[in-house]
Design a protein around this nucleic acid. Structure first.
Lengths: 335, 335
DNA sequence: GTGAAAGCGCTAACAA
DNA sequence: TTGTTAGCGCTTTCAC
């Protein structure tokens, strides 16, 4: 770690002043610095491997090109990483980097994290939640340009980028309706998960518009719940021709239930999942609604970057489309 | 975003000089600043909500309390997040934050990422790989305090924190041996995955020491390979009494194969996996070797932090223990 | 026990 | 067209 090269060294080697170096390297030299001096500066910079000290530059310009991110437990799940990764990529493309810290769902740590990030003069703040939920931002968070990811502010003071769960619930239902199903069962998740209610709303909308019939059966989120509830629902005189599942793991349970009962998918039973879980959906050939985590992260970063560019930040919830991933688990019902 | 509070404001309110503020707030005031002035400074700082500007402090002290992290594609898999999360937590506890950027396995982006991180004066650099592999650090990377995570330098110039795959392979094997198995089949992964060879080495060691017999059958890493190869291996006159699997997904395939053939686990067949995949192992009750991603991340951060504290960085590979997770899939063979 | 002054590396206004 | 200067906010001698 030899002493760092500074603009002073470059200026000396090129035989110009430090300001000349600054102008040339920041593209503000045209018509200000002679062509040969420009060349000399560039040559010297290259020879010395000069990189401007970002800290000094930040101090001067009062901009760190850094977005502070508070995550609530992002690494524990399968999906959180995709959001952060999407945000990182979009930010990096504009020269911004993410400074991340995890609060482990601890309110005190959250506040402390905001403080740490603010002390480092982040240009903007982002709060990212593993699972969609309501989040009350501390005052210090609101003092900056800020945004929520996979979360929303109950008081609506900050905008939040979220997956469009209603559309997702509607799409999954419509896929079954369009295939011709009229007797549909929806194995729902649990109410403490906010997405659940929204998906149900979307589902009901689609059903009502169609005139078909659906039954909602509380189930849960895990494979064994899918197996158990799926078996109960299917092992009756007039079973549904299609099942919509709370998520892909439940769908996997339904696959098992169907296999047990000798029902083939999709010939005897159509199944649609939710999440596009990479560990489940492709293996099963499951048609499912994609939770657009990466796109959400990208969206959040680009909104924040826009705000730093002077654009207005939106308010309220910013839904990101949840597309349908079609595989082989849905077909027309046996007539 | 009202104008930021500076030490100047605090000094003015407390009626002292800026240097006094600095001394008090950094705990260097004892015996230097009068008790009442100290109290005044603290009161003023609190009232104004003063936080020292980290950028200015960094410029002054030439230390940013930041670790730059280059990831190669960390968010795409199930495990990468745990490493980063472990590192983040350990670093945060010492006031360090991670500045992360993803190279998407692109060499040019890698070099650029190192440049960006160096320009921001990170105190140390970490390269983290999703899957264990060899990585050739650019010169610019080596110019800093640096370390590899889940990777190793073929030329040995930087140390790399890795999971102990040999021990893992040995442990999995020993679990079966201790249960009394003498006819074991190992469904191996593929050679382009470096961990595979190491696990095989560990496996062979354990087998040789025991005098038991094992057969290695190339299989792969996915559930369908496990099902297919598992079926082939089990559907013979004298099948193995235990199967060791390349990973947990393969083990899931073996579970399916066993079910098809009417073999109960663990009564008729013992199975051991690798990874402790949270999406697979608990659901199956699978005994498996834990890939200690979080511990690896923690280890890397604490080594780097130690180095910043003046301690020597080790060289070569730094293995982190891969513990056995015992569940129900292993029992004594039917005699 | 306290405050003035210098300087980290950079950029932008200003003077030459 | 160029170089000099001031200052971002902080810490740390060094006089007082």
């Amino acid at each position: 770690m030899a002493r760092r090269v500074t603009s002073h060294d470059v200026a000396a080697l090129a035989g110009v002043s430090r300001s000349a170096v600054s102008l040339v390297l920041n593209g503000r030299a045209e018509g200000v610095i002679s062509a040969e001096n420009q060349a000399a500066v560039r040559a010297a910079a290259k020879e010395l491997g000069y990189r401007p000290n970002g800290i000094a530059r930040s101090l001067r310009s009062a901009a760190t090109h850094t977005i502070g991110v508070i995550t609530d437990s992002i690494a524990s799940g399968t999906y959180g990483g995709a959001m952060i990764s999407g945000a990182t990529d979009v930010a990096a493309r504009k020269g911004y980097l993410l400074l991340a810290i995890d609060s482990h769902q601890d309110r005190e740590l959250e506040v402390e994290a905001v403080d740490m990030l603010r002390a480092r003069q982040c240009d903007a703040l982002l709060f990212a939640a593993e699972g969609l939920h309501s989040w009350q931002p501390p005052e210090s968070f609101l003092a900056e340009k800020c945004l929520l990811l996979n979360a929303f502010d109950p008081q609506g003071r900050v905008a939040g980028v979220v997956g469009d769960e209603e559309v997702g619930g509607r799409r999954a239902t419509e896929l079954l309706l369009e295939a011709g199903h009229r007797r549909i069962t929806y194995l729902t998740g649990t109410d403490e998960v906010i997405a659940n209610g929204r998906r149900i709303t979307g589902h009901r909308e689609a059903i009502e518009r169609s005139g078909a019939h659906s039954t909602l059966v509380p189930c849960g989120w895990e494979i064994d719940a899918g197996l158990e509830t799926g078996t109960r629902v299917l092992d009756v005189a007039e079973p549904p021709t299609a099942i919509m599942c709370a998520n892909d793991r439940v769908a996997a349970g339904v696959f098992l239930a169907a296999a047990r009962l000798g029902l083939r998918i999709p010939e005897d039973l159509s199944v649609v999942g939710y999440d596009d879980d990479p560990n489940v959906a492709p293996q099963l050939g499951l048609s499912t609604v994609l939770l657009p985590h990466r796109a959400m992260g990208e969206r959040a970063a680009s909104l924040l970057l826009g705000a730093l560019d002077g654009k207005e930040l939106p308010t309220g919830e910013i839904p990101v489309d949840s597309p349908m991933v079609r595989r082989e688990s849905v077909a027309a019902p046996r007539s």
